[in-house]
Amino acid sequence: MSCSIIYEDVSFTYPNGTDALHQVNLTLRHGEHVALLGPNGAGKSTIMLLSNGILKPNQGRIVVGDLTLTADTLKPIRQRVGLVFQDPDDQLFMTTVHDDIAFGPLNRGLSAGEVEQRVADALEAVSLTHLSAKAPHDLSFGQKKRIALATVLAMQPDFLILDEPSSNLDPRGRRQMMELIRSIPSTVLIATHDLDMAWELLPRTIIIDGGQVVADGPTRELLADEVLMISHGLELPAVVKYS
């Protein structure tokens, strides 16, 4: 199955007038793990929300696989594109972990048996099977983050977009999250400030600033370019700075 996600000349302005994206062109190919870097307010979250139709572009179009994103294709596209937001409390809205993970598969109309299997598999993937019956507010932050990822993994999306997956995690939690991401077979786009994680985990980087793509290439090249990084509100990753 051809799985790529393409942004063609996408522009978006918020209702209150804030210009978010200006003629963005991007192609993510099947199986790529890509970092999305940029200063705050550059448009990273906007790209996320446009990917599955929560926001609609003012101009341009988004193509997921062989489907163009329109009002009619929202449902199948949302099954293929999984979003994991920054704050896990925004995504764990059911009363137990099990119900949260089952939410996506159930909405898809899967049978009870299939749903249970998906839940078990997702919990297995994040190594938290023992937390199935727990309430979200009884979890630690790191556990919440992993369960939030599990809720999306259970939908078995072809494309995964994560927003700051390593933020606010302690070193061990961060390491666990990174190993988890490494093991995901689908196409992954990660919006992050964690430059060291990008360096270590993600072979390709896209830098966006002021609503436009300003760089797109191999991570080890772009992140070592000090002038490029500094001019877009970033800096050299520690691993480059101190080597």
Partner: peptide, 19 residues
């Protein structure tokens, strides 16, 4: 608003599904 975005992303149909 964010919760709603997360719900839509996971296919929310307006009804909370129950197993």
């Amino acid at each position: 608003e964010r919760i709603h975005a997360a719900m839509l992303s996971r296919g929310y149909t307006g009804i909370l599904p129950r197993l």
